[in-house]
């Protein structure tokens, strides 16, 4: 059986994490290709609804990257994200989704290596957890029809 290749969606703030991801690229650091990033200006823009929607539509893991505490380009957006992620993790657990599938990490614009390491570790964690499988019954129906 082929090794499970998880689908991972990322949200990265423009000023810190996205820039850190760019630096990882400029420095040619390598990490697994599973992650696809959506750029937002601030991690505070990430609606809880986006996370739930991504899981519902087939993401096996979601990686959120923001600025380090105190470094937010918009003063305090990352603190709001931190609270939302905390609440979301509780909600996910209640829905039967492992909270570890949602990762919040702080990556500054100068931390290309930290970004590459974080993505590598997170991808491996999701690989261990296996597919989320929320859509399996529907897929099975489609296959049967």
């Amino acid at each position: 059986m082929a090794k499970f290749s998880p689908t991972i969606v990322g949200f990265a703030c423009n000023w810190c994490c996205y820039a850190g991801a760019d630096l990882a690229g400029t420095s040619r650091m390598k990490y697994p290709p599973n992650l696809r990033i959506i750029r937002v200006m601030c991690s505070g823009r990430i609606e809880p609804q986006f996370i739930l929607r991504a899981f519902k539509e087939g993401a096996d893991g979601i990686f959120i990257g923001g600025c380090h505490p105190g470094d937010c380009h918009y003063v305090s957006g990352n603190y709001k994200t931190e609270k939302r992620v905390y609440l979301l993790k509780n909600l996910l657990a209640g829905l039967g989704i492992e909270p570890e599938r949602l990762e919040l990490n702080w990556v500054s614009a100068s931390e290309g290596q930290r970004f590459a390491d974080a993505v590598t570790q997170f991808t491996e964690r999701i690989r261990q957890l296996g597919p989320l499988g929320l859509n399996e019954p529907a897929d099975a129906l489609v296959a049967a029809s």
Binding site: M41, C42, E47, P48, G77, K80
Partner: peptide, 26 residues
């Protein structure tokens, strides 16, 4: 400054952040 913290919190979905609307990100 367009950070988008407010639309993400609005319970009535009354706030839109231009260029990063919920519809666009969805």
């Amino acid at each position: 400054k367009g950070c988008g913290v407010c639309p993400s919190a609005c319970p009535s979905a009354a706030i839109t952040l231009r260029h990063y609307t919920s519809v666009q990100i969805d």
